[in-house]
């Protein structure tokens, strides 16, 4: 299963970006093979609706879940419709966030 994490910069430092739509990089983690890939987020430059554009990419990447700091209401709604689970985390690193996800410590965000 593919899970996407939102990362700062080009993602190589392993630092999470709290933002979803305007995070520069998505880290795509494959939970079966433990593989990780980095993908640039093309929505960063949208004047408006960055979160929605990013949601589209998440689904196009074939992810089943997203781990990020905060996800706007519109994007949350869209991801919910697409069957992607959204988890919010306060962790600053990918490693911590992944560990929390494995332990079941992350809160699932749902549209109101």
């Amino acid at each position: 299963m593919k899970i996407v994490f939102t990362m700062q910069g080009d993602g190589r430092d392993g630092l999470m970006d709290r933002r979803f739509g305007r995070a520069e990089t998505f880290l795509v983690y494959n939970s079966e093979t433990d593989e990780r890939g980095l993908v640039a987020n093309s929505a960063v430059d949208a004047a408006m609706g960055a979160g929605l554009k990013a949601a589209e990419s998440i689904v196009a990447l074939g992810a089943v879940a997203l781990v990020t700091g905060e996800c706007g209401v519109k994007a949350l709604h869209a991801l919910h419709r697409a069957g992607v689970k959204v988890y919010s985390t306060d962790s600053t690193t990918f490693a911590d966030a992944l560990e929390d996800l494995r332990q079941g410590n992350l809160r699932e965000a749902r549209p109101a």
Partner: peptide, 11 residues
């Protein structure tokens, strides 16, 4: 002004 610009300045 836009969300994009504000995000840029914050970043």
């Amino acid at each position: 002004n836009s969300g994009k610009l504000v995000s840029w300045v914050r970043q």
